[in-house]
Design a protein around this nucleic acid. Sequence first.
DNA 1: TGTATGTGCTTTAACGATCAAGCAAATAGT
DNA 2: ACTATTTGCTTGATCGTTAAAGCACATACA
Lengths: 355, 355
Amino acid sequence: MRSSSRKASVTLKDVAARVGVTSASVSMALADSPRISEKTKEAVRAAALELGYVPSSAGRALRNQRSEAVAVIVPNTSQHVFGHSYFMHVLTGVSAAANARDMQVVLSTTAEEAGDVAAYERVVRSRSADGAIVTSAAVTDTSLEALVASGLPVVLIGNFPYLPSAITVGIDDVDASRQITEHLLVVHGVKRVLYVTGPLDHQTGIDRRIGFEDAIKGRSGVTAQVIEGDFSEDAGRRAVETMLNADAHFEGIIFANDDMAFGGMQALRSAGLRVPEDVALVGFDDFGLARLTNPGITTVHVPAEDLARLATEQLLRIIDNVPLEPARQQLPVSITVRESCGCTSHPNTTNSAIT
Amino acid sequence: MRSSSRKASVTLKDVAARVGVTSASVSMALADSPRISEKTKEAVRAAALELGYVPSSAGRALRNQRSEAVAVIVPNTSQHVFGHSYFMHVLTGVSAAANARDMQVVLSTTAEEAGDVAAYERVVRSRSADGAIVTSAAVTDTSLEALVASGLPVVLIGNFPYLPSAITVGIDDVDASRQITEHLLVVHGVKRVLYVTGPLDHQTGIDRRIGFEDAIKGRSGVTAQVIEGDFSEDAGRRAVETMLNADAHFEGIIFANDDMAFGGMQALRSAGLRVPEDVALVGFDDFGLARLTNPGITTVHVPAEDLARLATEQLLRIIDNVPLEPARQQLPVSITVRESCGCTSHPNTTNSAIT
DNA sequence: TGTATGTGCTTTAACGATCAAGCAAATAGT
DNA sequence: ACTATTTGCTTGATCGTTAAAGCACATACA
């Protein structure tokens, strides 16, 4: 089969041949260089349109040493994090910021890497992308430190106090957690509370716990119990079951995220307890789930999409060597009040958000 | 600033200089060519590792005329489709299949395209990707036809009877819709039903409606009403409100997807009607929402991740010129029974799936 | 009149990887 | 011993793009 079906794609040379100039002239013409006459430019544009010329990203990347792409890197197994709608928000934010600058978005999961080089190193060092957005990285992820140290353009979503040179965009987990805890304690007068933590090898898990403790501290008449979770629905369920089996008493539960709050809510219902009448509860994240349950979960709204967009904008600044003033940014959060805390009497009607 | 901070990346040449051979030899050595002595290969591998050599994707793409990437293209506005967790499943499936073959995944949304060339055409014709997976394309999307006709490697997720030459992977929407309708009619003996359609400019919307009609057809004693929706939660809510205001009577509702079922369920609750006691209902998709609501929604489980994985595998076959026997595939679906239809008495305990 | 300054293109070179062809040196064949 | 073959590398070309330098000719300025 010598007459292959592979249709050679249109290159600068083809356009040049059509117009009767060299490919360099076409390049300059399309770049609107002042060195090219208006007449030639017009002819080139017409020919390019007619032939359907689209610049080769490889040729351009090779020549310019820029791929015009940003990578989104997920260090965990794709199973877990993809399953989280958080990731969806991140992708929306990154896409929006990248598309606004005509940059591609490359997805990269650190699945089972063969060599020593981690996924992000591979993507960035192969120049498949000019920089990377890294999200949901564990504290224990040592390669992250190497990546940040390597000086390659990287922006992390979240807070990484143990990586002082990292560019990050996050929220104030401590303060937010303190706020939502206080909502339960002050607004609803809950005295006996249970706190279900996130994974304590993630900064998020650590910080939210600290926020909870800050809120409890020095508040008289409040008794608190803490049980460790891992952000999974099942952990929330098990935490509640464990406490109920131990015959523990609590009027309110603060979950470190919504997934666990949902699991916990199911366990409470199975035990015949009503939410919020018998037990009030709150979550954290508001990535989608909290709105769907019945009762809806009062939670901290984390602006994941905004975080991702801002992170990407920062990344593009780094790539373009534009100085960025605050290397670490924190976006404000709001508390979305629903029914699980006892605020609204009519479940699933209107949801209000206070700032 | 002549001493730029830009660290030149390691290329074949650098490795070659270290070993004392030419870059061509290094290339062949790393490719494990029999023309290179074992000794040299070893030296090359050592040097490559030491210097942290990672092949330039641009150089390789330019030379091989292959980018080793697949694009995932979403023709709708990113707002809408990203918001749907369906997309998350698709990404997981595509990533899994692509990563298994060491291919990158490039994300592409048809946002506001400047020129005539649509997003997928740009991505594929710029050779940023060797092929594309297209999902959630509307029937009215004419550029899709041009894309399929252009002969570029593309696999569509869904059914596209009006594009006979397209390679597709989907489910049998007609049959699935018929099945879930029959569940409500036969198992639960519902006589007066309401059907809320999807958008009728999508094949999915059309086919599911046909399946519903097939199930109704020739079934004596069953009266049906149809109202048009658009897959949005709000459409489901409005459909139910409209019917209630018209004082329509129905014991069961079949929604063309879960989002609408959720909206409808809220409207029923607001009207003081219980699900499933007063009105039984079913949905379609099972992308995540149906499990979270209370009561859980009995629905058709669409294996989105499997569809995406299979579609990507087909795409890779096309790219590699491997002949693929069935150009159009359909994956089987199952019905996930929850509480909204009246099957399970205890809401939110265990969910069973029947095949 | 002789030297700058434009103008509008072409030529050249380079980005990094890879494959075909080439070319010495070592080995094998008769 | 003298020609084949093999071995193990190098040379050179190529992929598509773009920046810099070059080049012939026209015009401007002193």
